[in-house]
Simulated assay, not measured.
Amino acid sequence: MKKIMLGVSALCLVAFTSCKEDATAKIKSENVAEAAARDANSGNFATIEFEETEHDFGTIQNGTPVETVFRYTNTGTSPLVVSDIKSTCGCTVPSDWTKQVAPGETGEFNVKFDGKGNGLVTKAITMTTNTEKGAETVRIKAMVEGGANAMQPAAQSGAQSIMQQPVRKSSTQPGHEGHNHD
């Protein structure tokens, strides 16, 4: 039994010493420099500042398409990366955004709103970024008049009683206020 234990110990000793290579020989100096630069900037997030965080289209007629441009500046020390922009509804379409913005530089994106709804309509547009929060939000709003679900004066609508009027449905999804999905 002692001979077996002694043999296994010798075999293990040979195995561990024969596999020992110099690990430092495998390290590339350019990778070390790149990792050092990355680690130095790991706590530095890009910082975004908007010219306006909410755009008011004012009063528009139902079905009137409108659009605006949101401009943003990278006020941080790291490059700003905007990987995606989405809205809360298909009636609001963000497009053509500046994907990378160097420190001190300015980027922008367009937002088109189809102008449909009734009453005060507010929509949120969310940017996925490399800022500390990871997402930035801007909003558009408009007072939409003359929508399909707009209340008509009693003299024009034939003076229906409350019991005869159709039930109005409205969305309960966040960001769909004033935007009916009938």
Score class of each variant (00 low, 15 high):
Val32Thr: 07
Glu52Asn: 14
Asn74Val: 08
Pro166Lys: 14
Asn110Thr: 15
Thr53Pro: 01
Arg38Val: 06
Thr126Gly: 04
Asn44Gly: 01
Ala15Glu: 02
Gln165Trp: 06
Asn118His: 10
Val93Lys: 09
Ile162Val: 13
Thr122Cys: 12
Ala142Gly: 06
Ile48Phe: 01
Ser87Val: 02
Ala135Arg: 13
Ala159Gly: 06
Glu105Trp: 09
Gln173Ala: 15
Gly117His: 07
Thr98Leu: 04
Thr122Gly: 11
Pro103Ser: 03
Val138Gln: 06
Ser171Leu: 12
Gly178Val: 10
Pro94Gln: 06
Pro103Ile: 00
Gly76Cys: 04
Ile85His: 03
Lys112Pro: 04
Ser83Lys: 09
Thr92Asp: 02
Arg38Asn: 10
Met5Cys: 05
Ser78Asn: 07
Gly134Val: 05
Glu108Asn: 13
Val32Glu: 03
Gln156Arg: 13
Lys28Cys: 05
Pro153Met: 10
Asn130Pro: 03
Val32Tyr: 02
Leu80Cys: 07
Glu51Val: 14
Ala150Gln: 13
Gly63Lys: 09
Gly117Ser: 09
Ala148Thr: 11
Lys99Pro: 07
Lys99Ala: 15
Thr47Lys: 04
Gly104Asn: 02
Phe50Cys: 07
Asp114Val: 06
Gln160Gly: 09
Pro94Leu: 05
Val69Pro: 04
Gln61Ala: 14
Val14Arg: 03
Ser78Thr: 01
Ala10Cys: 09
Lys112Ala: 14
Ile162Asp: 14
Asp96Ser: 12
Thr129Leu: 05
Gly63Asn: 06
Ser157Lys: 08
Pro174Trp: 10
Glu51Phe: 11
Ala35Lys: 05
Ile48Ser: 02
Ala36Asp: 11
Val8Trp: 08
Gly134His: 03
Asp182Val: 13
Thr77His: 00
Arg139His: 09
Ala25Met: 08
Glu105Ala: 15
Gly76Ile: 01
Val121Ser: 01
Ser18Asp: 05
His55Ser: 08
Asn130Val: 11
Lys2Glu: 10
Gln100Ile: 09
Pro103Gly: 02
Glu49Tyr: 04
Glu49Pro: 01
Thr24Glu: 14
